[in-house]
Design a binder for these strands. Structure first.
Lengths: 396, 396
DNA sequence: CTACTTTTTCCACTCAGAGGACAAAGACGG
DNA sequence: CCGTCTTTGTCCTCTGAGTGGAAAAAGTAG
């Protein structure tokens, strides 16, 4: 099928496309209620969108008491590809133009194998989704990578955990391979956009989205827009000092948050506890699997293992301390906790909450929800689809 | 004289007013070069502005080789009042529409004497400026207060160091008294706006402005706009934990940055050092003045007093640690250090720089200047004038 | 004084958008 | 089944913002 290459010609059309994306099919009349344009103007713009085939007419709308209206919806053949490259796994999903996930696959892979190997994998996963009949091609793709990105160019810059990716033209290369527009961003920013689009942050303009996975990062949303900082490294909170003279960190300093609590740190501490026989539960799991990960700690904690619970609580406290500082500074309307270790669930959340509510001033915390993300592993790919759709649904 | 009550009628006029404010008198042709409007449209809008008397014709412009053009400038009779209410003193200044300070007076006063007493003082200072012939009246006033403000309403909310101000309708009250529009903001935000308008931050879109005075606060500028947070308390970094289990703080926690370094903390530590005879220099000053303030520490340090230098270095380290965290999180393009204790100058700056450059990641610090504010005590009042002018020079 | 520039004004023309009138299509009561 | 009412969609005219060219005004350079 011929891909849609059209873009909205003006801000009105862009507005309409975003309304249809976020609100699903709508009649002209319903659209008119939302955009403050005269009926004539609206009709003109809708007609032009119909001509570009970005939107299509779609049957009759429910009656509101008078003449029934015809629904307008985004072209149901539009397909976006959402790719979330994590430190240790890759998520790829296909969505329609309303950003609903039509198919989603996950594959373990170490990002340190380098961009070439990773892209091979991504392309084969995309091909698999295509083969299953979900898409005939892609109209756009969003990519998340676990490190800072120079956003306008879509190029990773000095990513600590992605050797070999520095300066690699991710956007350019994937755009070539996929034959469609591509946007690249930090995976944490995409998670924030996902939760904003379809998750807990739908109604909040200013919020933080803390992702605790192999590393720790934080998406910052200001006035509904992701804030990326001067060089694209905003939200890189993993290397804030959490413990004076604490554990050494890969970055060269000591006591970084990431060195004390993250998927990697948790695995390390669990291994130590198992070997020192402080936790029979963990020791048993080590015996079985030959290795320990954050998942084991979560399972052990769920089974009531005191050492594991302590590890989680301790980490939650550290993280909570750092978040408390950020809350004082940024005064967000919401804090979302997400990422791989959310399996640790409410033990973690409780520890974080305790620290934040204790350390930040009442004015900042008075009405501040701190919640777990509600999309889990789909937040990233939804955010990725959102990223490219925001781009494509803006005037050229 | 009749005050100007006109406001720009549309975005074009607002744009022109701001260009004239920031760039001084300009010919129509020069304005045309900057605004991307057709000559005819520009002429129409300028004529309308002339009708409202917001701008006036002002002689001939310098020749650019052809017909000489007439200059347009903001009405030279326009006057803004900038008020900066600090914890222990009040600054009041009069500016013209280009935000140049025409007169500036400072008066010690404790903000804890409450809004009524403080406003009496402010009004008498404003009257004095008027009496000296600098203004016949004010077209607008900006007010900075040392605590969080619900910005749209111009009302302090739960200000820790301003008992009695909570909920006091500052904007409303002063607007009544002065008979002109008033805007209220946190003093730190105004300092940031001042440095942005006329100081070191003129060309930077995203920066932090750390003010170390009686307390510690931080102005946050995102995309050229001050970010105030969900409840107006953004930038309240004085109560971030800097020292685990450190000094008790008035807020009820321990180890807050403000409890370890600020005008008040410095005075406390200096007094202790003097009494314990660790510093002859400080002891002598205590003898002379009967009390010690941050100014004494600065003087002693300048005279080579080792204890004072240590106090400054120690405080700078603490502050630098906190700033390092904020830099990692926010990735600003510039950090400005200002406030009362900038007398401590380069000793302080060096300590802060050391910590930030050591603790934050190279990507965030690589191109990050950390500098002292360049406006000193005028930053606040200039920012106040800027605040109200931004308001008045926007479409009604 | 002449040739050339630049600035400013004037004017005709275009185009986006508003809003009213009217036609189309269904709901609903009799 | 029919007339009335409501909602939706289309058409058409009118307005006002804005553009761009031409010419006048007012200089500079030689």
């Amino acid at each position: 099928m011929r891909r849609m290459t059209a873009r909205p010609a003006n801000a009105h059309q862009a507005r309409l496309l975003k309304l249809l994306r976020d609100g699903g099919p709508n009649s002209r009349a319903q659209l008119g209620d939302q955009v403050d344009l005269s009926r004539s103007k609206l009709a003109v713009e809708v007609d032009r969108l119909l001509e570009t085939e970005l939107v299509v007419a779609d049957g009759l709308a429910a009656s509101r008491g008078g003449r029934r209206s015809h629904n307008i919806r985004l072209n149901p053949h539009l397909r976006f590809l959402g790719v979330d490259i994590g430190a240790t796994s890759i998520d790829v999903a296909v969505t329609n133009a309303e950003l609903e996930i039509l198919g989603h696959i996950n594959q373990p892979m170490d990002v340190r194998e380098g961009p070439v190997a990773v892209f091979e994998q991504v392309l084969s996963m995309a091909a698999k989704l295509k083969a299953s009949g979900l898409a005939e091609g892609f109209d756009g793709a969003g990519i998340g990578v676990p490190g800072p990105v120079r956003f306008p160019e879509g190029v990773p810059v000095a990513p600590p955990i992605m050797p070999g990716w520095d300066g690699f033209p991710v956007r350019e290369a994937l755009s070539q391979e996929l034959g469609c527009p591509v946007m690249v961003d930090n995976d944490v920013n995409l998670m924030a956009m996902g939760e904003q689009h379809a998750g807990v942050a739908r109604t909040v303009a200013d919020f933080l989205c803390v992702k605790i996975g192999t590393g720790i990062g934080c998406g910052i949303v200001v006035g509904g827009e992701v804030y990326r900082g001067t060089t694209g490294s905003a939200g890189d909170i993993g290397h804030i000092q959490a413990v004076p003279d604490g554990h050494p960190c890969a970055c060269g300093n000591r006591g970084c948050l990431e060195a004390h609590f993250s998927g990697a740190a948790l695995a390390r501490d669990a291994l130590e506890a198992a070997q020192q026989n402080r936790s029979p539960e963990l020791a048993a799991r080590l015996e079985n699997h030959g290795t320990l990960t954050a998942v084991d700690v979560a399972a052990a904690a769920a089974a009531g293992d005191a050492t594991s619970l302590d590890l989680i609580r301790e980490g939650g406290n550290r993280t909570g301390q750092v978040i408390a500082g950020l809350v004082s500074f940024f005064n967000p309307g919401l804090v979302v906790i997400g990422g791989g270790v959310t399996g640790l669930g409410h033990t973690l959340l409780a520890a974080i909450r305790t620290q934040v509510y204790r350390q930040s001033l009442p004015l900042a915390t008075g009405n501040l929800p701190i919640v777990l993300g509600e999309l889990g592993p789909t937040a990233g790919v939804i955010g990725a689809a959102r990223l490219i759709s925001d781009h494509l649904f803006s005037p050229a």
